[in-house]
């Protein structure tokens, strides 16, 4: 592999997706912007949710973007790490809860 699949500088070009599909791209960015506005949840809470989801989605661009965003909001590294653990707990819980399905199947086949 001569070049990596991900380039950190590509994040700056994200807006360019509208060039090949203006209406959908614009609608997406409008929606995106609206989602992160202060609402029933604070912008700070939304930023922490985004940071956790960025990790569960394993999106390097999102991790860069929301690490910076949470820092800008004065969120501490301990808070950031706890948020990621919330994502990780759900991810591992989602894996393990399927263990019940496995147990059900074992019990049926070999009970």
């Amino acid at each position: 592999m001569s070049k990596p699949y991900y380039d950190a500088a590509d994040l700056r070009k994200f807006g360019k997706i509208t060039e090949w599909s203006e209406e959908l791209g614009t609608k997406f960015f409008d929606y995106y912007g609206k989602v992160f506005e202060e609402g029933a949840l604070t912008a700070r809470e939304k930023s922490l949710i985004a940071l956790a989801v960025a990790h569960t989605e394993q999106c390097p661009y999102c991790i860069d973007a929301y690490t910076k965003d949470t820092l800008q909001r004065g969120i501490t590294k301990e808070q950031m790490m706890e948020a990621i653990h919330v994502g990780a707990a759900i991810k591992s819980g989602a894996t393990l809860v399927h263990g019940v399905q496995m147990m059900n199947k074992v019990n049926k086949l070999d009970g």
Binding site: A43, R44, K68, L71, Q72, R73, G74
Partner: peptide, 10 residues
């Protein structure tokens, strides 16, 4: 190396 957040929220 990051910008300050919203002044009111901070």
């Amino acid at each position: 190396a990051f910008l300050p957040g919203d002044q009111v929220a901070m």
